[in-house]
Design a protein around this nucleic acid. Structure first.
Lengths: 249, 249
DNA sequence: TAGTGGTCTAGACCACTTG
DNA sequence: AAGTGGTCTAGACCACTAC
C-alpha cells in the first residue's frame, strides 16, 4: 500500500517486488550519502513503519543489500553501511617473503603524478566525454626494503581534483582511504584481471630484476557505490611471487 | 514439538536453530543419495508437514543449501539437487586461440594411468591411512590440433577402482562425468591455486614449447558432496595464454 | 487446472549488545 | 531494562510451469 515515491532506475535488484523497490530506495540513500559508510541505518521496525510494510519484507530488502555487500548486519547492534575496500587487497595475488608479508601494507613511492588527456577507451571507462582529462600516477611499492610492485594508475579528473592539491608526501601508503577522505569516493567493488608477460627494460630496473624477467600483470578496475568506474590500475610484479587461490562453487 | 531425530554432525550450517538442523538433515539425504543430483526434492509444503514446522522455516533451511550450492530452486517447477561440476571449468584460466575456444572442451590424451603408493601428504589429503594406494594419471589436452595443457592427476584408490577396469579409450574427454557414472562420485566443489614457473624439458617437448618456457601451474583439489577431497590435479599451460578475472566484493 | 516456488503479512518469542 | 537483529509461526495471495 502507500504510494511511496520510489522513482528509481538505480539498477539494484529492482524487479517489481515490493522488497526489490525498497532495496533500491535504501541503496539510493546509501549512494547519496544520507547514510554514510560505517554508520548504522534505522532499525528494522522503524523502516517497516516508514514504508508501511511488514517486518519480514523490510528484512528481505535489507538481505538484498547485504548480499550485494552494501550493508552488514550485527545482531544486537544494528545494520551498518559497509566501509569501502581498503586497497591492501591487491596483495592477495603475491606472496613476497615470509608469512607476515601477507598482511603487511607495502610502502608507496610516488614516481610521478600528472594531469593527462585520457585516450578514448579510458574516457569511456570513466563515463567521461572523449578527450576528457585524468590523473596519471606512477607508483612503486616496497616491502622490507625491496621494490616489489610497479603500478600505473589512472583516475577521472573532475572527481579526483582534490588529490592534485595534496602534496604526495601526505598521501600515505593506501590510495582508497585517500579517495575517501579527499574526494568523498567509496571504493565498493573491484574487478581484477591477471595476465602474464615479461618486463620491459625500464620496469625491470625499477624492480631490480633482470631484463625480460617474467612478470604477472594485474589489471584492476575499481568502482564506487553507484557502480561507476573510478580507477584503472596496472600492477606488475615478479611472476615467481605470484600465487592466487580460487574457490569454484 | 516433534522430536525429530536430527543426529548430525554433518558440518553444515548446524547452529542450534531449527532451520540449521533441518538444513543439515536435508544435506544428509542429498549426500547419502536419497535425493540424487538432478532430481527434485519434495515440495516445501510436504517437507514442512513432515518436519512439523512452518513454511517459512523450511524455506529458510532450503535457502541455506541453495547458498552452499547444493540445491537450486526454479519457480513453478520445484527445488532440485544440483548436478556436480562439469570439469570444463578449468579452461577459465586459459585463452587459447579464438573466442570459440573458451567454451570448447579440449580433447584428452591419456599418457599413462597406473596404481601407485601415495606419499604422506597425498594420503592425508584423501583422508586415507599412510601408505594407501591411488591412481596416478598423466594426461595431455589438445585444442585445435595443438597440445595445450599437461595434467597430472591423483585419485584415491579404493573409491576410484572402477576407472582401472575401464579401457582408457572409453574415458572420453571429461573426468568428472566419468567419476559420476563409474564411481558414483559427484564433484561439488574445487579449489584452484595458480602459480608461475618455467617448463622442464620433458614438459616443454610434450607441449611443443621451447625449453624453460614460462608456464602457469594450476593446482586443483576437488571435493565431493561430503567435502572429502577426491582429486588432486596439477595442470601446466603456456603462461602467455593465461588470463583470469577476479571480482572483489 | 493443479502444483510449484515467490512475495507478503502481522504478529510472537529469543539472543545479543549496550547503558 | 531497552533496543537491536535472529528465529519462527500460520496463514494469504501471486507468478510461473506443467498437463
Amino acid at each position: 500500500m502507500r504510494d511511496n515515491d520510489l522513482s528509481l532506475k538505480t539498477a539494484a535488484t529492482a524487479g517489481v517486488s515490493r522488497y526489490g523497490q525498497i532495496a533500491a530506495e535504501l541503496q539510493a540513500r546509501i549512494v547519496s550519502g544520507d547514510w554514510p559508510p560505517g554508520e548504522a541505518i534505522p532499525a528494522e521496525g522503524v523502516l517497516a513503519k516508514e514504508f508501511g510494510i511488514a517486518l519480514g519484507t523490510i528484512r528481505q530488502a535489507i538481505a538484498v543489500l547485504v548480499q550485494h555487500g552494501l550493508l552488514e548486519r550485527v545482531q544486537g547492534k544494528g545494520t551498518f553501511v559497509r566501509k569501502g575496500l581498503t586497497g591492501g587487497s591487491l596483495m592477495r595475488f603475491f606472496r613476497f617473503g615470509g608469512a607476515d608479508a601477507v598482511t603487511a601494507v607495502p610502502r608507496s613511492e610516488i614516481l610521478s603524478c600528472r594531469s593527462v588527456r585520457l585516450d578514448k577507451a579510458m574516457a569511456e571507462r570513466f563515463e567521461l566525454p572523449s578527450g576528457a582529462r585524468g590523473l596519471a600516477i606512477s607508483r612503486r611499492r616496497w616491502l622490507e626494503d625491496k621494490p616489489r610492485l610497479l603500478e600505473s594508475i589512472w583516475l577521472p579528473l573532475p572527481r579526483c581534483e582534490a588529490l592534485q592539491q595534496l602534496p604526495v608526501a601526505q598521501w600515505g601508503d593506501l590510495l582508497y582511504p585517500l579517495l575517501g577522505s579527499q574526494c568523498g569516493i567509496t571504493v565498493h567493488r573491484a574487478v581484477d584481471e591477471v595476465t602474464f608477460r615479461t618486463l620491459a627494460a625500464d620496469e625491470a630496473s625499477l624492480l631490480e630484476l633482470p631484463d625480460a624477467h617474467p612478470c604477472a600483470v594485474v589489471t584492476r578496475r575499481a568502482f564506487d557505490l553507484r557502480g561507476t568506474c573510478i580507477e584503472y590500475r596496472l600492477t606488475r610484479g615478479d611472476a615467481y611471487a605470484f600465487r592466487y587461490t580460487a574457490d569454484i562453487r
